[in-house]
Design a binder for these strands. Structure first.
Length: 619
RNA sequence: GGGGACGUAGUUCAGUUGGUUAGAACGCUGCCCUGUCACGGCAGAGGCCGCGGGUUCGAGUCCCGUCGUCCCCGCCA
């Protein structure tokens, strides 16, 4: 027999009562978290989003209420009114914030029962994710999920408040928009009114926010859902939330200041202090020092130890002397067994002639002088592991494409392979060197970095042409306009000067994760046309894809630029979570399925017919 | 599209070289218990071993297929 809520009014949340509340009459409402039945004495831990309070029923106080409470089971929803009592000294629970008090009940209303849930929110052991996602409403009752979602709110609010205070307007842009075939696959929405045509869900509000600058809003931001129909990963969902912003008349540094400002506010909201300004690094330097464009600064950089060997040494080792010899130092790994050292080679994914050479210990036995020089140059300490990556002499010097870049493709192969191995080694020995901890002080070692001056174009080996590395609205570096001019007709030529054009693009990186990406945009129609031409697009093609935007550019577009950061990833890192699913209330599985609502589903023929769509049954 | 791991009670897991009736813990049900807080004690219920096929006298275990979840590569301007 269930009770109605009636006019009973909640006075306190379950997690807030303290010794100072003793003697007060209060009304609490929540879920039965745990029940401890001692016969004539019954304890209920009552839970809401703020925490848990112990509620006591005993026959001495009220026989009838005690009897009613006997029917309570886990996850029943109840209201209790009563008096806050100080606990006796010997019954205080120091492990809970409300552990000095308990509630002596005058009235119990059972507001709802619960079926036996597949798992209990109070369980410490984690249920498998499939069950958690199917019963997400129960999973979200767990304190960790409550904490993560609450943190998400606080972080978003801190960012919203900061940007508002800096003069940014929060402006909405359409979810039903135009498909642009570049980049990620679009999610499409069929139009009923215009049969055979489709809207696309935005991969980002890129062109709208640029148009808002053309429209004179000066500073725009939006915490906005974006959609990409690509395969998922632990850190990639098909719909995700971006902190998207754009501003007029900025240098890149002005954008960075804004980002550093709101990240400081966001991290403070989660109880963390971070230092600004963030260090900055050219793309080329990131590749040379870390072999990746999103370096994790918690790990040591590479050392080029080519000069530690004599030419004869290099020849004996079949190392290409024209390419760097990378020493990867992984700290505090300790003495490795023969087998552990053998296991390193299979972790290595060679690109274009790169080879992993004998580890430091083996080199040291054969070439003691070289080993001593390497140890000195790479500042090795006791227990550090050194692994060498170099170009294979057999594979040749690979000078087919010297190009105009500072890092040649042959070098890139070495750096890139070494970069992957560096991370694999760090991951493998993470426990020993204590770097990738998800909890405690080590988890709060936040190393931010701006990576700047990305190449404007990247050679696409499949298409045999240069493609936009960031997106085609990114401004080339002022100083590189000549190179663009020179290369504008040579999109199919791997030797084109396009390879040397730098973009005014920047990524903000945190501990090896790309948090966000932005650029100063092109605001002049003449430069925009050149970029499209350099990308091999005819005027007609450009017009049919982006005509509205190119036209808008011609009506007095101010210089502008901006950035977008992944809110989910920021919260994931702050929460110490391994997956975005831990910070998104209703996420999708690796096959992009929502297990709770069971989406996507087939739809009826009538619905399809209205949309002018016919689907042949598969199989 | 490719590679890998996993799937046994409501939940987390164990299950030997293929061999009688598939186990444990938690949870659940009933009884007992007035100071517990992961309460305790006694008793009990609960299994399409993901699904389908095959090998075998005999399959949770071996083989093939399939479905699902997770991780990675490709992909993500």
């Amino acid at each position: 027999m269930l009770d109605f809520l009636g006019d009973l009014r909640r006075t306190h949340m379950c997690g807030v009562l303290r010794a100072s509340n003793a003697g007060q009459k209060v009304v609490l409402m929540g879920w039965v978290n745990r029940r401890r039945d001692h016969g004539n004495l019954l304890f209920i831990d009552l839970r809401d989003r703020t925490g848990v309070t112990q509620v006591v029923f005993n026959t001495d106080r009220d026989q009838a209420i005690h009897e009613k409470a006997g029917a309570l089971r886990n996850e029943y929803v109840i209201a209790v009114s009563g008096t806050v009592k100080l606990r006796d000294a010997n019954t205080i629970n120091p492990n809970m914030p409300t552990g000095e008090v308990e509630l002596a009940v005058d009235e119990l209303r059972i507001l709802n029962e619960s079926k036996l849930p597949p798992f209990l929110p109070s369980d410490t052991a984690l249920t498998n994710e499939e069950t958690r996602l199917k019963y997400r409403y129960i999973d979200l009752r767990r304190d960790v999920m409550q904490f993560n979602i609450a943190m998400r709110h606080k972080v978003a609010k801190a960012i919203r408040d900061y940007l508002s205070a800096q003069g940014f307007f929060e402006i909405e842009t359409p979810f039903m928009t135009r498909s642009t075939p570049e980049g990620a696959r679009d999610y499409l929405v069929p139009s009923r009114v215009q049969p055979g045509t489709f809207y696309a869900l935005p991969q980002s509000p890129q062109l709208f926010k640029q148009i808002l600058m053309i429209s004179g809003f000066d500073r725009y931001f939006q915490i906005v859902r974006c959609f990409r129909d690509e395969d998922l990963r632990a850190d990639r969902q098909p719909e995700f939330t971006q902190i998207d912003l754009e501003m007029s008349y900025p240098q890149a540094e002005r954008v960075w200041e804004v980002v550093e400002g709101f990240l400081t506010a966001a991290f403070a909201a989660a109880g963390n202090e971070i230092k600004t300004p963030f260090p900055r690094m050219d793309y080329d330097e990131a590749i040379r020092l870390y072999g990746i464009d999103k370096p994790d600064l918690r790990l040591p950089a590479f050392t080029d130890v080519r000069d530690c060997f004599t030419p004869e040494n290099l020849q004996e080792l079949a190392i290409n002397a024209n390419l760097p010899v990378i020493a990867i130092r992984t700290p505090k790994v300790g003495e490795l067994s023969r087998k552990e050292r053998d296991d390193i080679k299979p972790m290595f994914h060679a690109k274009g002639g790169a080879r992993v050479y004998e580890d430091f210990k083996r080199i040291g036995n054969k070439y003691p002088d070289a080993a001593a020089a390497i140890a000195k140059k790479s500042a090795i300490e006791d227990g550090d592991l050194i692994v060498l990556v170099a170009g294979s002499a057999q594979a040749g010097p690979q000078t087919a494409m010297p190009a105009h870049r500072k890092v040649t493709p042959a070098e890139l192969a070495i750096y890139g392979s070494a970069g992957l191995l560096r991370l694999a080694l760090a991951q493998k020995y993470a426990e020993k060197h204590g770097i990738f901890k998800k909890t405690g002080d080590a988890a709060k070692d936040y190393r931010f970095l701006w990576v700047t001056n990305f190449p404007m174009f990247e050679w696409d080996e499949g298409e045999k042409q240069w493609m936009a590395a960031h997106h085609p609205f990114t401004s080339p570096h002022d100083e590189d306009m000549g190179l663009l001019e020179e290369g504008v007709e040579s999109v199919k030529d791997p030797q084109s000067t396009l390879s040397a054009v730098r973009a005014l693009a920047y990524d903000v990186v945190l501990n090896g994760t790309e948090l966000g990406s932005g650029s100063i945009r092109i605001h002049r129609q003449d430069i925009q046309s050149k970029i499209f031409r350099a990308l091999g697009m005819t005027e007609e093609e450009a017009k049919s894809r982006f005509g509205f935007f190119l036209e808008a550019l011609e009506y007095g577009t101010p210089p502008h630029g901006g950035i977008a950061l992944g809110l989910d990833r920021i919260v994931m890192i702050l929460a110490g979570a391994e997956s975005l699913r831990e910070v998104i209330p209703f996420p999708k599985t690796a096959r992009a399925v929502d297990l709770m609502v069971d989406a996507p589903t087939p739809v009826g023929e009538k619905q399809l017919k209205e949309l002018g769509i016919s689907v042949k049954k598969l199989g």
